[in-house]
Design a protein around this nucleic acid. Structure first.
Lengths: 246, 246
DNA sequence: TAGATTGTTAATCGATTAACAATC
DNA sequence: TAGATTGTTAATCGATTAACAATC
């Protein structure tokens, strides 16, 4: 997938940086390392080498060490990384030491499923409010939450301290919802609607377009088919695996 | 997002390439251009400039022209791109001129929603078979399809000419399902389970991890909060927007 | 012809990778 | 001390971008 990003790094001359300036590619991989580390911790590992953690996260060890070096020096030469220490460090950097409140707008087919998705709750987030424009949906209970009308969005965002909004409306409604979320004070948006959102400075948007993922796979299917048709046929040397991120 | 990718480009000396060798970043953006072009066509545009299409797709025009130049020369200097021609060309490259058959494994919360997701059908894909390991789910009808037991996977893949598999099982089951899909002949997998899959050469995997998307946003929330706390406060110069892809 | 816009060049930037010195 | 493994260096690779010559 691809994400848009406009620069906004204020100058920060002198002093210890309050916040490390991590490469975007590194940021996108930290959650994967975190997931792998939680698995290792659960399996009882106290310590893990870069080689081992890299394998568990599906990257090569040089990249992993380079990524972790941006956080500071949390490994021990000749030994490896302390699993618990690294978990704490990555969770701190990702801002997961606080449980973030999320609003979800659009409880149709996909939105309904997202509202009940265990993975959010178990990995640092609380969906605290559901909204829809359809009066048919308003009032329904999903996973213990009552669907409210989008008109109440502003109040809810302020009252519940919501900073992240998830948009799972049809594309035609998405920009309006984004505007409402931003007006209410939300500064991060996860957009499932297949359309481009325009947002003011300081607001981050990530987009997940499920059909695009399949279309990218379709390209590779097409390419592979055209290669097999060629004299010599398909020559493979390893699986191709990509994880969606920026 | 990040995706793993192991090289597998066989040498292709001499002759006109049967298939253009597109940069991975370009491939990931073509579907976005296609979506924008469909919108333009619906709005009645015959022709569009790189500037106009770039705006509709949320990228800058230099990048768009560079991307399209890899496909060949389908624009007219001084005029722009023919919308219909470009749609046909991108759809051909992405292999969307044929409607691809997709199998979905795991009809829990998320899988159920994916099985009914309109966006797949409207953008080149047919979900032709649903599977689950849970006998409680087997036999249920979702969106006109009957859920079958994973044991029948192999036969269905062959009979229905399925080339793409979607995995929406719990992570503990995902590797086994991937193995089954590959054994049955599937060569592309879209994985929603939060785990790394290992697959043989020639099989493409894309991963969508919903919690990771939120965690990346959480990082930016954390960063923004730490900047506001700094003397001078937050200095923004534009919205940050990223689309999930490789 | 004059104006518009593509396709391409070349410079820049950021990410990846292998190799190895530092050090536990 | 010897073996293991990190953190860093430097080379390489791929992607982005601005600028502009080509050309409709």
């Amino acid at each position: 997938m691809s994400q848009q990003r406009h620069g906004n790094t204020p100058g920060n001359a002198g002093a210890v940086p309050a916040f490390p300036d991590l490469p975007e590619a590194t940021i996108a991989r930290l959650p994967e390392y975190l997931r792998a580390l939680h698995n290792l911790a659960e399996a009882g590992s106290d310590t893990i080498s870069s080689e081992g953690l890299a394998a568990a996260a599906g990257v090569n060890s040089a990249k992993l060490r380079k990524d972790l070096s941006h956080l500071g020096s949390y490994g021990t030469r000749g030994v490896g990384y302390d699993v618990t220490l690294l978990i704490d460090q990555i969770e701190y950097i990702l801002g997961l030491d606080q449980r973030r409140a999320v609003a979800l707008v659009g409880v149709g087919n996909l939105g309904h499923a997202l509202a009940g998705y265990d993975g959010f709750a178990s990995r640092g987030f609380r969906i605290v409010a559901l909204f829809d424009a359809d009066l048919e949906q308003v009032g329904k209970a999903i996973n213990g939450l009552t669907v409210r009308h989008v008109g109440e969005l502003r109040r809810a965002v302020v009252e519940d301290g919501i900073t992240i909004g998830v948009i799972s409306t049809p594309p035609s409604a998405a920009q309006g919802v984004a505007d409402d979320l931003v007006a209410a004070g939300v500064t991060s948006i996860l957009n499932f609607a297949p359309c481009v959102l325009s947002v003011p400075a300081g607001v981050d948007v990530r987009k997940v377009d499920l059909a695009i993922e399949l279309q990218i796979l379709s390209f590779h299917e097409h390419r592979k088919a055209s290669l097999t048709a060629l004299p010599g046929g398909l020559v493979g040397e390893g699986g191709n695996q990509e994880a969606v991120g920026s």
